[in-house]
Design a protein around this nucleic acid. Sequence first.
DNA 1: CTTCTGACA
DNA 2: TGTCAGAA
Length: 129
Amino acid sequence: MKVKSCLAPDMRISELARQTGTTPRALRYYEEQGLLRPDRHASGYRHYDEQAVRVVGHIQLLLSAGLGTAAIAEILPCIPDDRTVLAPTCPELLDALAEERHRLTGSIEKLTTARAILDRIIQGAPDRH
DNA sequence: CTTCTGACA
DNA sequence: TGTCAGAA
């Protein structure tokens, strides 16, 4: 039995943008990247359902974690759109996250090295008495 | 009034 | 990503 019948079925792009703290521009962009597939009405307007709010939330979370739209497009289908929290539900998702984590580890190492170099230069600056 | 697409002094 | 144009 469905206990999901809420009152907020379909909304237009500006509404979804408001509810997700983004802009219509970004939502159209997500769609271009294959992250969203809203249905169209005769008017040509995009229509989103409540689930879209969570999906967009997942997209934003993944984006802020550093994943690219391409990666997100691949793993998004692994996530049941009715999930409130994002958890690894399939091997593909886990792999993508592990990969991104690995990339971050590499970036952190480079940044740490860069900072160490700057520290040495700063320390070695002239007239330091 | 709102959204759509395409484009970028 | 913002923003503007021209159309619906």
